[in-house]
Structures are given as C-alpha cells and as structure tokens.
Amino acid sequence: MNANKALWEKGDFTRIAATMRESGEALVRSVGVGRGDRVLDLGCGDGTTALAEARLGADVLGVDISSPLVKAARQRADEAGLSNIRFQEGDACDLAGLENGTFDLVVSMFGAMFAPRPLDVAREMVRVTRKGGRIVMGNWIPNDPTMVAQLLKISSSYSPPPPEGFVSPMLWGVEATVTERFGAAGIAPAQISCLRDTYTFDFAGTSAQFVEVFRRYYGPTMNAFEAAEKSGRAEALRQELEQLFASHNKSPDHNHTTIPATFLRVTVQV
C-alpha cells in the first residue's frame, strides 16, 4: 500500500477532525466561497471544510487518499442533506480524471501538505484551477512554538529516521519554499501571498484526555508511540505530549481543552 495512504487510514482521524469544525467553518467563510463556485477540497478528510463550502452554495468535490475518510465524509454529507457535494478517493500528487481548469477554487487545509511529492502537488493544483481562480492552502509551520508543529516535532524525535528521499511536509510552511514550488508550476511570486493564521482545536475533555485521542487515532502520533514502546520510551513521550497540550490549553475549564495553533495561510491567484 502507498505509505501515505496507510498513514491516513491508520487510526480514525474523524476523532481529531471533530475538534476542528468551528475553525474550519470560519476559515471557509473568510475565503469568500460563493454560490455556484466550483470548489475542489483536496485532502478533505471527513469534510470539515468541504461541508462548510457546500453549505455556502458551492458545488464541491472532496478528494482524499483515505478510503475510510471518504466514506465518513459521504455519510456526513448525507446526514446534512447536501446534494451539491461529492467525495472520491484520490492522490494529491496525481489528480487523474480531473480536467484542466475545472475549479474556481482549490482548498487544502493540512491535507495536500502531507503528500510525498510536493512539486507534483503544486503542479496538479494549478492545473485543475481555472485561469483567474484561486488556491488556498493551510500548512503547519516548522519549528513554530504552537501545538501542532511541536506535536509533530516531538513525535518525529521518538520515531525511526524517515526513508531516503523523504521530503518533510513541514516545508510547505516555509514561504520561500511555497514560492519555489508554485513557481515551478508557472505561478509568478506576485501571485502568491502568505500570512500567519490561527486554527483552534476544541475538545470536550482534559488536555491529558486529548493526548490520548491523538495516541489512539492520529497516524503520526500512533507511529511515534509504537516506536517509543519498542525502545521503552512510551511513558516519556506521553509525559512530554501531556505537558505540551496542558501548556497550550487556553480553556479556563480544566475539563475542557481549547488549543490555538498557528499555520501558514497560502493564497495563489492562478
């Protein structure tokens, strides 16, 4: 199996996505999705932003590499009674079957950044966007002090070295790299803008319980714990993550967790 597919089919990312709904909806509103817009939501997961786009009247296609997440997204859309949205399995590196210039807007929040061939990802996003359309990406930032970047950094420190040729997904959070990748796809630097934005996780439980959700259901954290258990360091990893989550929890209620995380918001005018 494709290693990236295996990673995102491991566990149950819907448990994490459930804590991301409010920020996803707010982001979609800020993007300016219009009624009748043709939108591709790439790396859509179980539809956090895709359903919000459809509710604003867009004609939405959600694409994700994970079969279970595509199934979960279809179920959520059915339950919401949305007929202007569909989901299919697909790879952000190769959007075979999607014609050139199909979409007014391509959105990828923390999705396409994890695909293994970033130059192909940028090229494919540009290819399927119509001239005059837009691409909006949300990407975690390397070494950022907020929660997600630190979670991934800590997890990688307990995991085996990546395979030869591995390209860190966090490089999508570096403005110069973003400009270089879209430049290779034919986009001039003046057509690319980047700013720092905030995404908030909201969990109905303690920060330690939230760590346990990541441990049980989030592929990268699951892999880190599996490696840590083999080396006898699982307890050290748990303590480090619990300290991280607790230190970033902004909720005044000990039994609730609210954690903001900084990301790079990329907008490309095609």
Score class of each variant (00 low, 15 high):
S30F: 02
D46L: 02
D64W: 11
I65N: 12
R35K: 13
S67L: 04
E53D: 09
G32F: 11
R29Q: 11
A52L: 01
G47W: 10
D37T: 03
V33G: 08
G45D: 13
G43L: 01
T48F: 01
K71F: 01
L40S: 02
G34L: 12
A58Q: 08
V31T: 13
L42W: 04
D37P: 01
S66N: 12
G36F: 08
S30Q: 14
V39M: 04
R29M: 00
S30V: 00
T48G: 08
L51S: 07
T48H: 05
T49K: 04
S67D: 14
S30N: 15
R35G: 08
V60R: 01
R35P: 05
A72Q: 11
R29A: 13
D37I: 02
D41N: 11
R38E: 14
D46P: 15
K71H: 07
D59T: 07
A50C: 10
D59F: 06
V33T: 10
A50I: 08
C44Y: 10
V70Y: 01
V60W: 05
V31A: 02
R35C: 03
V63Y: 05
G34W: 06
G45I: 01
G45C: 09
G32Y: 14
D37E: 15
E53V: 01
G45N: 11
V63Q: 03
I65P: 10
R38I: 00
D46F: 04
G43P: 03
L69N: 11
V28T: 12
D37Y: 14
R55V: 00
G45L: 10
L56H: 04
R35T: 12
L40M: 05
V60E: 07
I65V: 15
E53L: 08
R55T: 00
S30P: 00
A52C: 01
D37F: 15
D41A: 06
K71W: 00
S30T: 09
D59P: 00
D46S: 15
D64S: 12
G32A: 08
D46Y: 11
P68E: 06
G36H: 13
D37G: 09
R55L: 06
G36C: 10
G34K: 15
G45M: 10
A50Y: 13
K71Q: 12
G62F: 04
V70T: 07
V28Q: 06
V60K: 00
A58K: 09
V60H: 05
P68F: 07
D59A: 10
I65A: 14
G43R: 01
G32I: 07
G57C: 10
L40Q: 07
L56M: 15
A52Q: 04
K71I: 03
E53N: 04
V33K: 11
L61S: 09
V31M: 14
D64V: 06
